[in-house]
Amino acid sequence: MRASGNDTSRLEWLLLGQSGVLTWAQATEVLTPGRVRHLVASGRWHRVCRGIVCAAPGGPYTREQQWWIAVLAAGDGAVLAGLAAARAGGLRGTWRYAALDVLVPHDRRAADLLRRLPLGLPAVRVHRARHLCSADRRPGRPPRTGMARSLVDAAGWAGTDDEAQEIVAAGCQQRRATPAELGAVLDRLPQARRRRLIRQTLRDVAGGAEALSEIDLVRLCRRHGLPVPEGQERRRDADGRRRYLDAYWRRWRLHVEVDGAHHMDVRHWAADLRRQNRVWIEGDRILRFTAFDVRHRPVEVAAQLRAALTAAGWRP
């Protein structure tokens, strides 16, 4: 039996919205079971795993198809979570997830779900969620946790503390979520992993330091008894564009730049030198450190900060 025009339109919209991945139930709501089996047998569609089909010949799956397969294979109520959900929401970064994280209602049996998941795809970790309120859900494509919940979970499931901090800082720096929104998620999740570390990172972000290297600088100052910088300072450059200084002690007119990998690029390097000259011309002192030094040579960095602040009039 051929599908009607309305059914064909429904199928096209469904395939478009779900990156070509459907459950058997979804496919047979539009087409007859015999028609679906014929599409699979003819090679136009293929079976991903039990209960899941893809409207394309077998082959490498796109990132979006991987997300859909994980969510649909996990069953009713499942949502994409963690770093994958944050990526689906627009978070940019170089982190790679070793597994796709999926949240399911707490009364579901994760072991049963794992047996249904397909081979030849990234591993899928199924987490049973006791706390998953409407504020933590985002009805997207695919269904996923909201950005704040995604960032908190991703930080908790990250491989290292540094990676956890980077994810939280990047989410705030890219304006994907605010520290207040992440704090509200932590309030709802008293058992969240790395809860204390995430709280501290959010306090530093709220204080004006957004990149992880800047957060490390603030913590270095606290550990070594130095005054804490006031965070990012906004300035206008010669062309009238708004620029941000990484860290600034206004009282002592000391400006510190923490250079990441992008500063090694020739174009960035030249622009940084021009900006540094302008800071000096305006009467500020300027120090520059690499992010590596801030993290791995804190004693040397602290000594130079102390000397610069003392020269500018600071007294412990």
Rank of each mutant, 00 (worst) to 15 (best):
residue 262 H to A: 12
residue 95 W to K: 02
residue 146 G to D: 05
residue 116 R to D: 09
residue 136 D to C: 10
residue 218 V to I: 11
residue 213 S to E: 06
residue 9 S to M: 09
residue 81 A to M: 03
residue 174 Q to K: 11
residue 176 R to T: 02
residue 157 W to L: 13
residue 201 T to D: 08
residue 107 D to F: 11
residue 149 R to E: 06
residue 211 A to L: 10
residue 167 I to E: 03
residue 240 G to S: 07
residue 272 D to W: 11
residue 226 L to M: 12
residue 203 R to G: 13
residue 116 R to E: 11
residue 242 R to M: 12
residue 278 R to L: 08
residue 283 G to K: 09
residue 108 R to G: 03
residue 285 R to M: 09
residue 9 S to I: 01
residue 61 Y to S: 08
residue 62 T to I: 05
residue 144 R to E: 02
residue 262 H to C: 02
residue 196 R to H: 11
residue 70 A to C: 06
residue 71 V to R: 10
residue 98 A to Y: 05
residue 59 G to D: 07
residue 18 Q to C: 11
residue 298 P to H: 13
residue 91 L to V: 04
residue 236 R to D: 07
residue 298 P to F: 14
residue 49 C to E: 06
residue 27 A to F: 10
residue 308 A to P: 00
residue 155 A to Q: 04
residue 14 L to H: 11
residue 177 A to F: 02
residue 161 D to K: 04
residue 281 I to R: 15
residue 153 D to K: 05
residue 311 A to W: 01
residue 302 A to S: 12
residue 82 G to P: 00
residue 95 W to S: 06
residue 173 Q to V: 02
residue 148 A to E: 01
residue 142 P to F: 03
residue 30 V to K: 04
residue 276 Q to R: 09
residue 308 A to F: 07
residue 224 H to I: 01
residue 183 G to W: 02
residue 184 A to P: 01
residue 149 R to H: 08
residue 211 A to T: 00
residue 255 H to E: 04
residue 243 R to H: 13
residue 273 L to C: 09
residue 210 E to D: 06
residue 202 L to M: 10
residue 22 L to A: 12
residue 36 V to E: 12
residue 229 P to A: 14
residue 95 W to I: 00
residue 149 R to V: 01
residue 53 V to P: 04
residue 301 V to M: 13
residue 42 S to L: 08
residue 127 H to S: 07
residue 104 V to F: 15
residue 131 H to V: 05
residue 17 G to N: 08
residue 164 A to T: 00
residue 13 W to N: 10
residue 86 A to Y: 02
residue 186 L to Q: 07
residue 78 A to E: 04
residue 251 R to D: 06
residue 301 V to A: 15
residue 94 T to L: 14
residue 74 A to C: 12
residue 215 I to G: 14
residue 196 R to M: 05
residue 23 T to P: 02
residue 152 V to I: 12
residue 225 G to R: 07
